[in-house]
Design a protein around this nucleic acid. Structure first.
Length: 401
DNA sequence: CGAGATTCATGTGAAGTATACCTTTAGGCTTAA
DNA sequence: AAGCCTAAAGGTATACTTCACATGAATCTCGTA
């Protein structure tokens, strides 16, 4: 079959999707299932904002894929509808703190919020105080109640400490025209315990817990979305149930379950099938994990890639699941640097690089003491053998080894 | 045999450096009166 | 003389390095039973 034939076939063949975007993570549904409780709690807490009173700060937590972000955005959207209709001075700003180079330091976070308020702030060069000043002014100019949503706030605090949050919660005392209220979203349930008590008490004036979905709830969500997104009969009986059961058993992660289905359908489409089966579901799972890792890896700087490559090579060499230690990684990394004419980073820095990979979830690294034989990080790779081979060759091309 | 002391390999914090980028300011040049 | 542009000066955040000290359990040491 020639390429032309293939492409012609492809358009002629009907897509299995009715509307693929419904299954994509950016999709914003009309209705949020199984979060009635949380929605009403949030609405109650935020309602005073419609009377131009500052609502309490909210701290929302729950595992990934439990609908935190969605629920909060949904509620805010409803409130905004009303505030616009009634001409109530209310505004909300949503920031994801995890995004590298966007909101992962104090400076960048404040700068990013200010940008949402219409200020132009350079990526570097200004004193942080100055950025705070611009931020105060921007807030005051709004003359509004401002609800600031900080998603993945735990990531931010892990990196730069809780002082930023403290400053933000205290800012109201200096504001005359506007009032700021904060909604913090965290995946890490233990997160709040490590906060400065002052920060903790002011951030979590109200707490909202998002429990994991159970299998039945995930199934509901899947059915609803699939009905909109995919054509009738594409999804074989039992596939949704299986997928839901699987997701519920793992983490109760609805986002993942949705993605699993979407990718499974894409795979089926590519194979020229008319419906998906458990087989595609399995393949889908593998593909998602691979895409995630590939995405992370390719966006890392060369030095980081080389560190990861070293880790994988050592893992490969050992074959069994022996743990890998920092020293081995560093010496291999240094050799490779010499071969590639890259200036090696210091061990101190590589140590941080390794823990960044840990944070990204590509590897598992924990600090252990080997008694007499010193202390080190014990690194384990999370991905399976087949994928490692792929990653290795990907890295080899990228690093031209 | 068991309580302390020792030891190793690296973690980790603090301070310093290079780089990239920002604002301000002082000349220098152009322009219009 | 006023206006505009440019380049230097002075300042900052960030990624990384350098330096120095902290860690913590396996192992060693040595007094005691």
């Amino acid at each position: 079959m020639t390429i032309t034939e293939f492409l012609e076939n492809f358009i002629r063949k009907e897509s299995l999707f009715k509307n693929k975007s419904v299954l994509q993570s950016a999709y914003f549904p009309e209705e949020v299932l199984h979060r009635e409780e949380q929605i009403s709690q949030i609405a109650k807490i935020l309602a005073p904002s419609l009377r131009a009173e500052r609502p309490s700060n909210i701290f929302a937590y729950g595992k990934t894929g439990t609908g935190k972000t969605l629920t909060i955005q949904y509620t805010l959207k409803e409130i905004t509808k009303i505030s616009q209709r009634e001409n109530i001075p209310l505004k909300h700003v949503y920031i994801n703190c995890k995004l590298k180079k966007v909101a992962d330091t104090e400076y960048r976070l404040i700068a990013e919020i200010s940008r949402h308020l219409g200020k132009n702030i350079p990526p570097t060069g200004l004193p942080t105080d100055e950025v705070y000043n611009i931020f105060y002014k921007a807030l005051n100019n709004e003359k509004k109640i401002i609800i600031l949503v900080l998603d993945e706030i735990d990531q931010l605090v892990k990196k730069v400490g809780d002082e930023v949050i403290y400053n933000l919660t205290r800012i109201n005392t200096e504001l005359k025209e506007s009032q700021l209220s904060i909604i913090g979203i965290s995946n890490d349930i233990m997160f709040a315990d490590n906060l400065d008590p002052r920060v903790k008490s002011s951030l979590s004036e109200e707490e909202i817990v998002f429990p994991s979905y159970n299998a039945i709830q995930i199934q509901d969500i899947l059915k609803k979305r699939c009905a909109e997104a995919v054509k009738e009969g594409v999804i074989e009986d039992g596939v949704i149930a299986k997928c839901a059961a699987y997701a519920a058993r793992e983490h109760g992660d609805a986002r993942r379950a949705l993605e699993l289905i979407r990718v499974a359908v894409e795979i089926a489409e590519r194979k020229g099938l008319s419906k998906i089966t458990l087989q595609e579901l399995d393949e889908s799972e593998e593909k998602i994990e691979k895409d995630r890792v590939v995405d992370i890896i390719t966006t890392q700087p060369k030095q980081f890639q080389l560190v990861l490559y070293s880790i994988l090579m050592i893992a490969e060499r050992k074959k069994n699941n022996d743990p890998i230690f920092t020293g081995d990684i560093y010496s291999l990394y240094k050799d490779l640097c010499n071969k590639t004419n890259l200036r090696p980073l210091t061990q101190r820095r590589v140590s941080d690089v390794i823990s960044e990979f840990d944070l990204l979830g590509i590897i598992n690294a924990k600090v252990i003491s080997k008694g007499r034989y010193g202390r080190t990080r014990e690194v384990n790779i999370v991905t399976n053998d087949a994928m490692n081979t792929k990653i290795i060759s990907l890295l080899e091309t990228s690093l031209s080894l």
